[in-house]
Design a protein around this nucleic acid. Structure first.
Lengths: 338, 338
DNA sequence: CTGAAAGCGCTTACAG
DNA sequence: CTGAAAGCGCTTACAG
C-alpha cells in the first residue's frame, strides 16, 4: 500500500484518475466497464485511499470524535461502547479519546480531533479552562455534550436527571431512620458534581436531616478520592450512619475503605453508590445505588450529533435516574455509632 | 476557525506562507520578528492548522492508533489508559478504537486508522479473517501486537506469560484437594484463549487431575459466555469442585451465576478468576485470581511501537503472570458435591 | 460517461 | 532568514 495512489490505479485500469475516483466513491456516472477495471486494479494493487487527501478535498471524513473523561470508569466505557455501535449503524466511525479527568488533556485531544477534521464531536466536558470548548462551539463544527454540560455554552446535550435519583436515595435513607448522611461529592467543576450535590442538599433539607457541613467531602470522580472521602467521614467524632457517593469510582473507593476498616456495609453503615456497574451487583451485600442508563446516553448522543451534522438543532435530552434498592442500606443504628 | 488558513495568517503577519509554516512547525530558520508577528496573527485569527493537509505533505501525524478488543473489559480499559499516558509522554496522541471482540469491526477500524495515516498502530488482534492484519504487516506501517498475537504474522509484540499463572492456579487447587476442575476457556481463535487452555491442560495432567472433556467449556471473553459456561459446568451430574475462568468478564459472569444458584464461593465451590480487576478485590469473599499487569503491558506496547517507528526491530516482550490467593478458594468438599 | 485541470491547506527543497 | 513554486493524493465543477 505504501505509495500506491489513485493514479497508479487509474493507469493500471486504463482510465483517468477522475474516473477511478468516481468508481471509488460510488459516483453514479461510471460505466460498468470502468467499474470492473478499476475494482480489479484496486484489488491487484492493494490500493487504500488516503483519507487525509480525500477529506482535504471533500471536507468529510465520516469520522466522529468521542472525548470521554475516563476510560477506566465503567460508566464511560459502557457509554463509549454503546455510542460506537450506534455510530456504526449510521455509517460513522468513532475515534475515542480519553481526557483522564484532566482539562489539559481534554484540550490537547480537542486540538487533535479538530485537526483530524472529524465530522462531529461528542464531548464530556471537563471543568476549568473552557477556552477550547468555547472555540469548538463557535467553530461551527457539529458537537454535542454528553453527561456533563458547560453552562454558558450553547450546544445540544444529553444528560441524566441528576436530581431525582439522588432525591429518592436521601428519602430512602431518611425512611430507614438515618439523620446524618455523609456525602462524597464530585468536583464542583463538573456540572454533574454540582447538580448531584445540590440535589443532595435539597433532599436532606426537605427530609429534615442534619445539614452539618462536616458531612460533605469533595472528590474528583476517581477511586482514590472516594476512599479518602470515606475515611474522613468515618473518622468524624460524630460519624454519619449512611454514606452516598456521587459516582461509580468513588463508590468503589468507599467500599474498599469500609472493608479495610472492618465496617459491615448494610449493618454498621448504609451505603448508596452511583452508577449501575456490574461490580456493584456481585458485591455482597449487593449495593443499593442510583442508576442511570449509560447505553441509552451514548446512543442518544450519537443520534443528536447525527442530527446536528444534518443541520438540525435538536432539543436537549434529559434521561431519568432511579434508585435501585438492594442490600447495602438498612435501618440506622440507634444509640452509639458503631 | 472554519476557513482560516495559513495564507490568512501569513497575510495578516505580513510574511509568506512559507515563513508562517516555519514558525508554526518550530523550524529554526525564523527571525524573532516573524515569530512574533505570526504568533500574534494566529492568536487573533484563532488559526488551527489542518492536520490533514499537514500530514498529506509531511506524511507524519504524531498520532497512533490503539485497536483494542473490548473497552468494557477493565483489563483493556486499564491497558488503554496506561498506553495513552505513555504515548503522551513521547509526544504521541492515541486514537482508540474498539473492535468489540469482532473481526469484522476490527477490520473496519483497521481501514479507518490506516486511512487516517496514523504513524503507528497497536493492535489486539481478533482471530478469524486475518487478511487485513496481514496487509497491515506487509504495508510497512509500524505496528505491534499487544496481549494477543497472530502466529504467522511477524510483528513485535508484548504479551503475558499465559502459562505460569495458570499453572500456579491449578497446582493451588490440586493442593487443596480438588480433582475435578472446571475450565471456562477463551475462544480458540485468540492466542490467549489457546495458550491459557493449553496451560490448563498441561497443569492438570502434571498434577494428575481428571481430564474429563466435559469439564471444559468455551466462551468468547464476554460476561454472558462466562455465565453460560458456569451454568453448564455446575449442572453436570458429576460437577467440578472448582472453576477457573480465563478472563475477567467471563469470571464476572461465573460469579453472577454462582450467586443466582446460591452456591457459596470459597466453600461450596472454589473459584479462580482472571485479571486483577478492582471489582474482584471488593467482592466478598475476595477473589483468588491470575493477575497480569495491564498497565505495564500498555506502556510497553507504546515503547515498542516507538522503537519500531524509529526504525528498530524490538524483541518480543513477555510479561509475568502470577496467582494471587485470596478467599474464593478453599479445600475441596469431600463426598457429596454440594 | 469521461478527461483535463484546478485546487483543498499545508510543507519543503531550491535559490537567494 | 525568506519567498516563489511545486507537490502531497485526492475530488469536483466544467466541457465535451
Amino acid at each position: 500500500m505504501p505509495g500506491v495512489t489513485i493514479r497508479d490505479v487509474a493507469a493500471r485500469a486504463g482510465v483517468s484518475p477522475a474516473t477511478a475516483s468516481r468508481v471509488l466513491s460510488g459516483h453514479p456516472a461510471t460505466s460498468v466497464l470502468s467499474r470492473e477495471r478499476v475494482e480489479q486494479a484496486v484489488a491487484e494493487l492493494g490500493f487504500r485511499p488516503n483519507a487525509q487527501a480525500r477529506s482535504l478535498r471533500s471536507t468529510r471524513t465520516s469520522t466522529i470524535g468521542l472525548l470521554i473523561s475516563d476510560v477506566r470508569n465503567p460508566f464511560f466505557a459502557d457509554l463509549a461502547h454503546a455510542a460506537e455501535q450506534q455510530a456504526l449503524e449510521l455509517g460513522l466511525i468513532t475515534l475515542l479519546a480519553n481526557a483522564n479527568e484532566s482539562v489539559e488533556q481534554q484540550n490537547r485531544y480537542l486540538d487533535v480531533l479538530l485537526a483530524q477534521r472529524v465530522d462531529g464531536l461528542i464531548l464530556v466536558p471537563q471543568g476549568g479552562d473552557n477556552a477550547n470548548v468555547e472555540m469548538l462551539a463557535s467553530s461551527g463544527l457539529p458537537a454535542v455534550f454528553v453527561d456533563r454540560v458547560i453552562d454558558d455554552i450553547d450546544l445540544p446535550s444529553v444528560t441524566a436527571d441528576n436530581s431525582s435519583g439522588m432525591g429518592e436515595a436521601v428519602q430512602h435513607l431518611a425512611e430507614l431512620g438515618h439523620r446524618r448522611i455523609g456525602y462524597i461529592s464530585g468536583p464542583r467543576s463538573a456540572s454533574t458534581g454540582r447538580e448531584r450535590f445540590a440535589a443532595f442538599q435539597a433532599a436532606t433539607l426537605a427530609c429534615g436531616l442534619e445539614q452539618d457541613p462536616e458531612l460533605v467531602v469533595f472528590g474528583d470522580f476517581k477511586a482514590g478520592s472516594g476512599a479518602a472521602g470515606a475515611r474522613q467521614l468515618l473518622d468524624l467524632a460524630n460519624a454519619p450512619t449512611a454514606l452516598i457517593a456521587a459516582d461509580g469510582l468513588m463508590t468503589m473507593g468507599a467500599v474498599r475503605v469500609c472493608q479495610e476498616l472492618g465496617i459491615r456495609i448494610g449493618e454498621d453503615l448504609s451505603l448508596v453508590g452511583y452508577d449501575d456497574i456490574d461490580a456493584f451487583a456481585i458485591m455482597r451485600p449487593a449495593l443499593t445505588l442510583i442508576a442511570q442508563d449509560a447505553d441509552e446516553m451514548g446512543r442518544t448522543a450519537v443520534r443528536l450529533l447525527h442530527q446536528v451534522i444534518a443541520g438540525e438543532k435538536p432539543e436537549p435530552v434529559v434521561l431519568p435516574t432511579r434508585l435501585m434498592v438492594r442490600k447495602s442500606t438498612g435501618p440506622a443504628k440507634t444509640g452509639e455509632n458503631r
